[in-house]
Each structure stands twice: as structure tokens, then as C-alpha cells.
């Protein structure tokens, strides 16, 4: 542990994650048979999709909905579960979403998970009278020392709270020239510093990396070479689409060849990866259909097996 990581109070990342294989997000709208197939090794659940928000003045609570939760558990059966949250806003300088964590406490008590991931970024800002305002879209975290400290301390706390690896996902974004401290450099430097100092891990979203590479003219293979690969526990592959001259991480289609190339390149470079997930949004999953989803899962599985023989 470095001096700097000690300063953040990082936990030792002696956490060992058993390799699982190929995963798929849980969507109530997809046929339940999809989650019973042998080609699936685990399920990724976004607990917020099983919740409702209740507001009482300025107090906000996120409540799990028993019927949705029970159905999800029935559908997913005995498959191992990883949590992929979207509401934490871990990088917000004014504070994170405590209601989300309270909900996750209840979720874990009901349905233990192998690891837990969130997006490296922020989506809330302070409003008037102590209220929290949603921006309406996740925004990238500035690559600054302050970000390392804020997100690092919170990541350490989360990892202690749940006793399982906590992963930060690299985001896709369209904003060039965000503030950055020279010693951190860019979003890859930010991820490296946070994971090293806090002991948390990375969810490497290869489609997000692909989007940033295309939109900001960087070499994705070079970017992978600078990443903290020994900290990568999960990989996302996904599809996107072009809007106004930008390739967007719309999660609305099949995985482009370039992203498959990145997966084939990355997997042999790290033994820490425990799972690869084909990520989609609910509304697009139904449109894509079972056949297309199955084909993507098979391709991911073939690459996984070629890199993880035995």
C-alpha cells in the first residue's frame, strides 16, 4: 500500500473474486427463459429498476418494491448476481445519494451480490434550500486531485460497508477540455489514481472507451495499456449509435466489431476479470430480441473461453 493510499484509508484489495463468465442485465420485459439458459453465468441487476422513490419534504427514500424484487429473484434463480447501480452519483462534490445506499443495504440483506459497481461521474448538484437537483444526465468527473480524494474515500467506505469488491465504470462523454490537474492527467489517470489509492476496482466498459476514442480521437489500445488492468473485475460490451456527429453510448444495438476486437485484446492482459456483460437498455433489449441477444452472448462466451481455457 502506498503512502497516498494509506492516507485515504484504503482497504487492502486482497478481495478475491471467483471468475464467473458471461452475464446479462436483468430485465423484467425479457422472456424469463433467457435467464435459465446455460450460456449465462451470472446476472447483473440494477436495483433501482426494482424500486420507487418516496419524498417527504426534503427527505428522500428509495424503496424496493417487494413484488418486482420477488419476481426478479424467481427469474434469475440460482445464478450469481452482481449489482450495477446508476443513482449513487459518487462524484458529486456536495454529497452522494445516501438513500441509494440505504436501499442497497436492504437489497444485500435480501439478495447477496458478488460485487457492486457504479459510474465514475456525477449527476446531482446542490439546489436551493439544501435540495439536491438532478442534472438529468450523468456527467464526467473532472480529473483532479479533489475528485481522487472525494471518490476514493467514498469507494473505500462502500467497499467496507458491503464487504464485496466495489467497481467504478469508466464513462463515455462528449465534453472535451474538462478541468484536469497535471499530475492526474485525464480520465484514465483519474481511474488509476482512485483504484490504487482506495483499493476499489474498475468496471471497464469497452463501448464507452470506444465512443471516447472515436469522439476525442484517442487510440483505445493505447488507452487500455495505461489502465489499471489488474483492478478490472468486470467488462461491459455494448452497442451505440451516431447522433450529431458523435458516437453515443446509447446501448441500443449489437456490439460493433471494434468493441469485440477490444475485448479480445484486453482479456488476455488481465486475469482479474470475473465477468463480461452484454449491456443494453430495457427498451432496446425487447426490440433486439432473444435471438440477437443470444448471439451476442455466444460470441462473448467464445472469446471468454479462448482467453480462459479450462
Amino acid at each position: 500500500m502506498s503512502d497516498r493510499s494509506a492516507a485515504l484509508g484504503s482497504i487492502d484489495s486482497g478481495m478475491v473474486v471467483q471468475p464467473l463468465g458471461i452475464g446479462l442485465p436483468y430485465f423484467a420485459s425479457l422472456p424469463s427463459e433467457l435467464y435459465a439458459r446455460e450460456l449465462l453465468n451470472f446476472v447483473e441487476i440494477t436495483p433501482e429498476t426494482l424500486c420507487r422513490e418516496r419524498r417527504d419534504g426534503t427527505r428522500v427514500a428509495i424503496e424496493l418494491l417487494p413484488d418486482k424484487l420477488e419476481r426478479a429473484r424467481q427469474v434469475c434463480g440460482a445464478l450469481p448476481v452482481a449489482v450495477h447501480g446508476v443513482e449513487l452519483s459518487i462524484g458529486s462534490a456536495h454529497g452522494w445519494n445516501a438513500a441509494y445506499l440505504e436501499m442497497l443495504d436492504a437489497f444485500q440483506a435480501y439478495w447477496p451480490f458478488r460485487w457492486h459497481s457504479e459510474h465514475l461521474g456525477f449527476q446531482t448538484i446542490p439546489g436551493e434550500g439544501g435540495a439536491t437537483l438532478n442534472v438529468g444526465i450523468p456527467l464526467p468527473q473532472p480529473a483532479t486531485e479533489e475528485s481522487v480524494r472525494i471518490v476514493g474515500e467514498r469507494s473505500t467506505a462502500i467497499q467496507r460497508r458491503y464487504g464485496v469488491p466495489f467497481l467504478l465504470e469508466n464513462a463515455a462523454h462528449y465534453l472535451a477540455d474538462l478541468p484536469a490537474d497535471p499530475e492526474i492527467g485525464d480520465e484514465i489517470g483519474l481511474m488509476r489514481e482512485i483504484t490504487e489509492r482506495s483499493g476499489c476496482f474498475q468496471l471497464l466498459d469497452l463501448h464507452n472507451l470506444h465512443c471516447n476514442a472515436v469522439n476525442h480521437h484517442i487510440d483505445p489500445f493505447d488507452a487500455i495499456g495505461r489502465m489499471p488492468l489488474s483492478r478490472v473485475v468486470e467488462i461491459h460490451v455494448a452497442g451505440g449509435s451516431w447522433h450529431d456527429g458523435f458516437l453515443m453510448d446509447a446501448h441500443d444495438g449489437r456490439v460493433p466489431e471494434r468493441v469485440w476486437d477490444l475485448l479480445e485484446y484486453t482479456l488476455p492482459l488481465t486475469q482479474s476479470v470475473a465477468g463480461v456483460v452484454f449491456e443494453m437498455l430495457d427498451e432496446h433489449a425487447v426490440r433486439l430480441g432473444v435471438q440477437a441477444i443470444t448471439e451476442e452472448l455466444i460470441r462473448a462466451r467464445d472469446i471468454w473461453r479462448s482467453c480462459r481455457p479450462g
Partner: peptide, 11 residues
């Protein structure tokens, strides 16, 4: 910047 306009449009 175009990236900002794209972000606003997506939002």
C-alpha cells in the same frame, strides 16, 4: 463546443 451541444441535446 459541439460536445456540449450534444450533451445538452442528449439531456
Amino acid at each position: 463546443s459541439p460536445g456540449f451541444r450534444c450533451t445538452v441535446k442528449a439531456q
